[in-house]
Amino acid sequence: MNGLVLGGTYALLGIGLTLIFGLMNVVNFAHGEFYTLGAYAAFATLAGLGGGFVAAVLGAIVCGALLGGLTERVLLRPLRGESIDTTMLVMIGVWIAMQNAELLVWGGVAKSIPHPFPTEPLVLGPVAIAPLRLFVMALAAGLIAASYLLIHRTKLGRAMRATFQDAETAALMGVKIERIHTVTFAFGSGLAAAAGALLGPVFLAYPSMGDLAALKAFSVVILGGLGNLPGATLGGLLLGIAEELGAGYVSSGYRDAVGFVIIIVVLLFRPSGLFARQERIG
């Protein structure tokens, strides 16, 4: 059960990163920081402004998207022609800067994000789950569905897909490539922020929470195949469930190793990801 909750949020992180890393070819080390930012934004909304939970998540998405778009516009666009290592270094700088800014603003003390749900767990048969986690799962599913709709049913989504399949042709057809890049980065970052806003109340918010999350996001992206949205979704769910099972039946200390071992094994036998056969968006 917990595996699904975690998995849903990993999926959100994965979708966001597969767009940025898989399609834009940017090794986004700061992805975890947008996740953290989302959690803090939710904290600010819920604790400071007294808004509702859904409002907090939406607010987090907006924050993440805005900052993401800004980052792309200001830092990445001028460096478009440079090698992947250069953009990676830029994102490392953003990562360090963001994390320490968060430390400066909110301090090192972990924040408990208040939420309006009762803490007594709901018992469904042999399984007990807290209402908050159920809500998180539902919202995550909703956001994933919304992402799909955006990519496949809207004009913007079509433009995005066109850009990443064949930029030259897309440009000839009138798609503004530069703007699509900015939007894609913003979208990916917004999803990461959503994941943070959702998981923040379940756990706690602290400045270094994004580091492990980013690593897991990268695993999910590889698992699903770069640029592969359904792959990222399934990959995220799989990782969440595998971690829960692994920690339960293997040793708890090696719990995070489960993610790593999975990556190594998958890459050894199916280098293009588990779901490579499925549709690639770009």
Partner: peptide, 17 residues
């Protein structure tokens, strides 16, 4: 005697044991 990583947030497996 169960252990958890310093940065771990999910201890459900250990609690179950």
């Amino acid at each position: 005697a169960e252990f958890m990583d310093q940065a771990a947030t999910d201890m459900n497996a250990q609690i179950t044991k």
